[in-house]
């Protein structure tokens, strides 16, 4: 941890969403006029169910195509090189440092935990059809790093399959971390995890952000949002309607009315 924190953070990447619209069956689900993500190390995206948070994240990854609009990333911060994400296929995102974890549990049913993690770290070069002797090089190159994560999160049987929903959720997060993202989007990363593991995930996220990765979290567990995020975006009915610090957002009248309810502390 200390190594990462001591290294000088590079300029934090930024994602710009401009005029992005998505409708399903004629109903507008996302309509974001202008949004900048990555201003602060860790940002939260909150809002009631159906606000369009997950769809917006999927639009950024281009796994849901936009009806119109443009989404771009500046990997070296504003003013640097621009990558138009909405022109790229989904699989090209990870190679450019943009990685997203999944809201619903996603796993490879026939791959073991080790398989899954080695798969995440394997580069295209060692996955070519003729590289049938590349396994040991891949394993040797990443063994320590993977063992580190496995020990940190305490998987039951890493050579076997992920057993519980919690293990699958963790596996999804570890796969994302192994990709060494410059910009990490986490969609409900702690849903279904016990408190102890939630803390561990949060610590990892803080560590990553301190080393210069921009992190955006969608989360319904608002304690995670309030304790982690430097800035929070509030989304309702497809649009981002507020932006502010945790304190500002949780005290804002609109957020209380539309999402938190009067009794929220």
């Amino acid at each position: 941890m200390s190594d990462l924190q001591n290294s000088a953070p590079a300029a934090r990447p930024e994602i710009r969403v401009e005029g992005a619209v998505k409708s399903f069956s004629g109903r507008v689900v996302v309509d974001v006029d202008e949004l900048v993500l990555g201003d602060q190390p860790i940002e939260g995206l909150i809002g009631p169910n159906g606000a369009g948070k997950t769809t917006l994240m999927r639009m950024i990854m281009h796994s849901t195509p936009l009806d119109r609009g443009r989404i771009s990333m500046h990997p070296d911060g504003p003013g640097g090189e621009e990558i138009v994400l909405s022109d790229l296929p989904t699989f090209a995102m990870a190679g450019r440092g943009l990685v997203k974890s999944n809201q619903v549990i996603m796993d490879f049913d026939r791959l073991t935990i080790w398989d899954s993690l080695l798969f995440a770290v394997a580069g295209a070069r060692c996955e070519r059809p003729y590289r049938v002797f590349a396994e040991h090089d891949l394993f040797d190159a990443h063994e320590d790093e993977i063992r580190g994560y496995l020990a940190y999160f305490g998987f039951t049987d890493p050579m076997g399959f992920a057993q519980s929903a919690g293990e699958k959720k963790l596996l999804d997060i570890v796969r994302c971390l192994l990709l060494k993202p410059r910009f990490l989007m986490l969609d409900e990363p702690t849903a279904g995890l016990p408190d102890e593991l939630t803390e561990k995930v949060m610590d990892k996220i803080r560590e990553l952000a301190a080393a210069g990765t921009a992190v955006v979290i969608v989360e319904h567990d608002l304690n995670v949002i309030w304790s982690l995020c430097d800035q929070v975006h509030f989304m309702a009915e497809g649009s981002v309607i507020l932006r502010g610090t945790s304190e500002e957002i949780r005290a804002h009248k609109t957020v209380v009315e539309k999402y938190l309810g009067e009794g929220h502390v």
């Binding site: 699989f91 990870a94 999944n102 996603m106 796993d107 490879f108 026939r110 995440a120 990709l179």
Partner: peptide
């Protein structure tokens, strides 16, 4: 095996 098992997930991993 990964692409056969879960194509969207494989794509999200690049």
């Amino acid at each position: 095996v990964a692409v056969g098992g879960n194509e969207p997930l494989a794509q999200s991993l690049g």
